[in-house]
Design a protein around this nucleic acid. Structure first.
Lengths: 201, 201
DNA sequence: TTACTTTTGCTAACACTGTTAGAAAAAGTA
DNA sequence: TACTTTTTCTAACAGTGTTAGCAAAAGTAA
């Protein structure tokens, strides 16, 4: 009987509709403007229907956070793939991370600024390959570090630093309205990454 | 006539009471639990009285953010004062910043994670001296950079990087529940600062 | 002390939020 | 047609920030 199949399909459709509508609201009015009632109004259903698909509002946010981590992972994998030299790979990944953050502010915000426990989302594995930006960075760093004699610090810790440096620069730039010019900001980032790479060996 | 003086004094008292009560709520239940009604209940006044002292809730948060920036500035100035060598000053200031963040999570959150335009608060000048952590860091960095031949990047930009590196490490550590051990995290931070200092010359 | 003015503080509401219990309507099954 | 399951909605609860407008208290001048 294809009835239950159709039902599942229709339910999925409503779910996608909820997410698409939510995303539109966020893009137009920002995260703080997103409410269950607004979504319900827009999809022309009553409020409890939204709760049939997501146990609460945070689950909706988490969905976008996961999407964001997947997208970021793909972008970084793509950037990395264009280079063979591990240092060049790190530079390209930093650049990809930077561009992702500012071309997708809404994603970046839900990933890091909305108080969602990001550990799980961050560790998400995007099909077809297990793309995780921590491991992506770790591989390149590992390559560079095996050629050096630094034993005081691990690859995992250096990956953490790499991430922190970029995230710090981005999150500070994002919260300050009138800061340095964009070009200067990117220059600062590139200099920081260059220093990081030097400090690996 | 001392009547109006007394009135001002009493009004100030209520204001301080509001802030003290708000701070207690935040320490006990976190920022998201802070509401005007809870404050009003605790100080045994009605809700609109709170609005006689603060035009809105954000103003209360801003007050704490300012306090936080002052406290941080003092801590860093104090740490810096213990050393003459600019590199040692930077290490000490990074350490002070790190300790401030984790010993005063509530302050750090309101300063950076609550979506408050921090530009003004950050630029706050604490009496008696004009203590601003950007300039504090800038001075030490300037000293090191005048002895070098780097002309591609300015002291201001390097100060920005210094701040970003530490902030990045802190804000990532803060949002991840079970991450590396505390000692390892601090080690990572110290390594990052060491790399930063090396990259100044 | 009385009459008037200013200050102070409160009640009650408005317009929202996330969330859920329970009833009604629609759809599918025997 | 009678019954069951699924779907959907109305209406509420318990909060939130914020404010209009009125009552009470305090201070001032006669």
């Amino acid at each position: 009987m294809g009835i239950s199949e159709r039902r599942i399909r229709q339910k999925e459709e409503v779910r996608n509709n909820i997410l698409a509508t939510a995303w539109q609201i966020v893009r137009e009015e920002g995260w703080q403007a997103l409410s269950i009632r607004k979504i319900a109004d827009a999809i022309e259903y009553s409020v409890p229907v939204v709760y049939d698909h997501f146990v609460n509002k945070e689950c909706i946010l988490l969905e976008f956070a996961r999407e964001g981590f997947c997208l970021l992972g793909r972008k970084m994998a793509q950037a990395k793939g264009k280079h063979a030299d591990p240092a060049a790979q790190l530079r390209a990944m930093a650049d990809a991370y930077w561009n992702f953050a500012f071309k997708n502010k809404e994603y970046y915000q839900v990933m890091f600024n909305l108080g969602i426990p990001c550990a799980e989302a961050e560790a998400c594995t995007c099909l077809p390959e297990k793309i995780n930006f921590r491991t992506l960075v770790g591989e390149s760093i590992g390559e560079i570090m095996t050629n050096s004699k630094r034993t005081d610090i691990s690859v995992c810790m250096k990956s953490h630093t790499f991430w922190s440096v970029i995230h710090g620069l981005i999150s500070i730039k994002m919260m300050r309205t009138s800061d340095m010019h964009d070009d200067l900001n990117k220059l600062v980032m590139e200099d920081a990454i260059e220093g990081f790479i030097k400090n690996l060996t």
